[in-house]
């Protein structure tokens, strides 16, 4: 008898809401950036865009690792610190006249090692990720500060060019007309996306992140998968750190810390960009680029760190609020 009344009156609005759900966030982000460009045209100049793209590499790569851990329903608060320690290690190795290949490889190995310790702690000992990685973060920070006797930066740009040239190539030179850093970011993007979409690890990660119990009963080694997430995040964080040292030719202790919060913002903004509101590697790229361009734009407009902090927070909350609205009640 009630069959004739529409139980979902909202359905009638579907075409518009559907469009907004799918693309609204991206349209919104583009609009914000365009607005900045209109107010100050130099924001969208070729030089500035290229510059921001180069700068954003570190954040993009760092966010990939975090995305994968968040995928698994974990969290890694130590990513920025791992990037830091990797940058310091690379710089210190060069300063101590070690070969360039070692300056690339050793920090990455170190990152993987720290990631493995995190993985053992969260997956095998059962420490909640949020607490465990916070602890790791502070232990690494102490290590850094002790090594640098306070906060002395490891300066590369005062070293003879012959030592640093090959190391700094990654961060400062171009291949053809494309900055080497951007190429690195694209390579890492392919790695991260491939890892999440094309490998058995990616498949297991989605399963463990969605339902641990069912995965466990289906014979998935849930501990190993959860631990592997932290290893991957350590790996990407370390790559980001080396890229940062190479770009700036200096490694300042705690220099990467601001990226932690930016990376969270990038991941959550990324959920807005993806169609069904889930974490995804491509979404994270969009989020990280938006965060980078926005902070550059705000600087160009003469607004500083406070606004950035506040906006980061507002955007995370907005992303979550929109996500909550998207889910059917």
């Amino acid at each position: 008898m009630q069959a004739t009344t529409d139980p979902h009156p909202l359905r009638r609005w579907l075409p518009l809401t559907e469009f907004l759900r799918a693309y609204g966030a991206i349209v919104g982000m583009a609009a914000v950036l365009l607005l900045v460009g209109v107010i100050n045209p130099s924001f969208l100049s070729y030089g500035n865009v290229g510059n921001v793209l180069r700068q954003s590499t570190v954040l993009v790569i760092l966010s990939f690792g975090l995305t994968i851990v968040l995928f698994l329903r974990g969290v890694d608060l130590s990513v920025a610190q791992i990037a830091d320690v990797a940058a310091l290690a690379a710089a210190a190795l060069l300063i101590h006249h070690q070969p360039v290949w070692l300056a690339f490889v050793a920090p990455v190995v170190l990152g993987v090692l720290i990631g493995s310790l995190n993985g053992v702690m969260m997956a095998y000992l059962g420490v909640p990720a949020i607490i465990g990685s916070l602890g790791t973060m502070f232990i690494i920070r102490s290590g850094e500060m002790i090594y640098t006797k306070g906060n002395e930066p490891q300066i590369l740009f005062t070293l003879p060019r012959s030592i640093t040239e090959n190391f700094l190539f990654l961060g400062q030179k171009t291949i053809g007309s494309i900055p080497a850093l951007v190429i690195l970011a694209i390579v890492v993007f392919c790695l991260a996306w491939g890892l999440s979409a094309l490998t058995s690890f990616g498949r297991y990660a989605r399963a463990v992140g969605s339902n641990v119990r069912a995965s466990f009963l289906a014979g998935v080694d849930t501990r190993l998968v959860f631990a592997a997430g932290f290893v991957v995040s350590g790996l990407f964080a370390a790559i980001a750190g080396v890229a940062m040292a190479s770009r700036t030719a200096i490694a300042v202790p705690r220099g990467a810390e601001p990226y932690l919060l930016d990376a969270f913002a990038a991941c959550y903004l990324g959920t807005l960009a993806s169609r069904n509101g889930t974490l995804s590697i491509p979404g994270t790229v969009v989020g990280a680029l938006f965060v980078s361009f926005l902070s550059n734009g705000l600087t160009i407009l003469g607004l500083g760190a406070p606004t950035r902090f506040a906006l980061n927070g507002v955007f995370i909350l907005l992303a979550m609020a929109v996500g909550a609205l998207r889910r059917p009640a």
Binding site: I130, G135, S142
Partner: peptide, 27 residues
């Protein structure tokens, strides 16, 4: 070294509680 020691104390104090529960640290 103090922040690191505090980080270590944090992890240790949590470990006392979670050991033997055999979960994984998802949140």
């Amino acid at each position: 070294a103090l922040p690191g020691i505090q980080g270590g104390v944090l992890i240790l104090s949590i470990l006392i509680g979670v050991i033997g529960k055999r979960g994984i640290g998802q949140i």
